[in-house]
């Protein structure tokens, strides 16, 4: 069990020790985004821009255009929301090689409530031309995806979470731009998940098995570009399609999968996630129950289908 933000912080220290070209930006949230360890170890390569996310993205772009490998962090609400136009116009339109590592995405933020729960960031980033979006499910996925990001040019958005998530991957697993990972080969249905909902989907898969329903789980860790081939394959090989995400169902992975199905393999998809409502305060697991982002709800959908 480890949060993906914690994994991000560890990645920065590990990789930053070897690669002196890496610089890290934060906006007064170094403890929360976990860039603090990098800050302590390499103080001259960590830039705390204060509570100024728009300035942070711009300054990070200036540094990237000067040849540095840049990681810029804040909460998803501020990285994708507050600094949206800076990400769009300064970073993406100029094809700046920047890694925007946004922590505290979704309802998973918990007690801080709706103002801090970004349930729109996938949608916001997805509509920016040239943007790449990753959403890792656990510790290993986070580190391997960030390593991949070092090889990729241009703007990247990496969606990270606040809470600890179970390990679902081993060191043998691989991640690539436009890829996905499929757990199992059940033909009764497919659950598309991403980030924190991958382990929830895997729990649901186990319960369904006990009811004699054999499903597979697809981790869409690369949201843009998305793995079209796998989505079409699952649509053709399995009966029921469900998506589950900690994001508004409008514009999230459910929408991404729907877009693919609509063009390539028309088929019904049940979208589990935030049903176009704002979040609220509470413990993350309680909020997931309240908003139906649970293994029980996934199981219910399959049993009723």
């Amino acid at each position: 069990m480890k949060s993906t933000r914690k994994a991000y912080g560890e990645f920065l220290v590990e990789t930053g020790s070897k690669n002196k070209n890496i610089v890290v930006f934060d906006a007064d949230l170094a403890k929360a985004t976990c860039t603090i360890d990098f800050k302590n170890k390499f103080p001259n390569r960590h830039f705390d821009m204060g509570i100024s996310e728009q300035d942070m993205i711009g300054t990070a772009c200036g540094m990237a255009l000067s040849g540095k490998k840049v990681f810029a962090s804040s909460f998803a609400m501020f990285a994708a929301g507050r600094a949206y136009e800076q990400v769009r116009n300064t970073a993406a339109y100029s094809h700046v090689d920047i890694n925007i590592c946004a922590t505290h995405s979704g309802l998973g933020v918990g007690e801080d409530g709706a103002t801090h729960q970004c349930i729109e960031d996938i949608a916001l980033m997805n509509v920016i031309p040239d943007m790449k979006i990753f959403s890792p499910a656990d510790d290993i996925a986070t580190k391997k995806i960030l390593n991949e990001c070092l090889m990729l040019e241009g703007p990247k958005y990496i969606r990270l979470g606040r809470n600890e998530v179970p390990d679902v991957y081993s060191l043998n697993d691989n991640f690539r731009l436009g890829g996905s990972n499929t757990f199992g080969n059940g033909v009764d249905g497919t659950i598309f998940a991403t980030g924190a909902t991958v382990s929830i989907a895997l729990d649901a898969k186990l319960i369904l098995k006990s009811f004699g329903i054999d499903v597979r789980v697809v981790d869409l860790y690369s949201i843009k570009p998305v793995d079209v081939e796998t989505i079409v394959k699952c649509a053709s090989e399995t009966k029921i399609l469900v998506s589950v995400e900690d994001h508004n169902v409008i514009g999230g992975i459910g929408s991404v999968v729907s877009n693919v199905l609509c063009e390539k393999y028309p088929k019904k998809l049940v979208k589990i996630g935030v049903q176009d409502k704002f979040g609220k305060s509470g413990k993350a697991d309680k909020l997931y129950e309240l908003y139906g982002i649970t293994k029980e709800n996934i199981v219910r959908v399959f049993k009723e289908s």
Binding site: G58, A60, C61, K68, V96
Partner: peptide, 24 residues
């Protein structure tokens, strides 16, 4: 042209980043 601009208010941050990089 080093960076796209014209959506006002954004260029100085980029200039800062470039100046900061030179210092580093």
């Amino acid at each position: 042209v080093d960076v796209s601009s014209g959506s006002l208010g954004q260029g100085l941050s980029v200039a800062n980043g470039m100046a900061l990089s030179k210092k580093l």
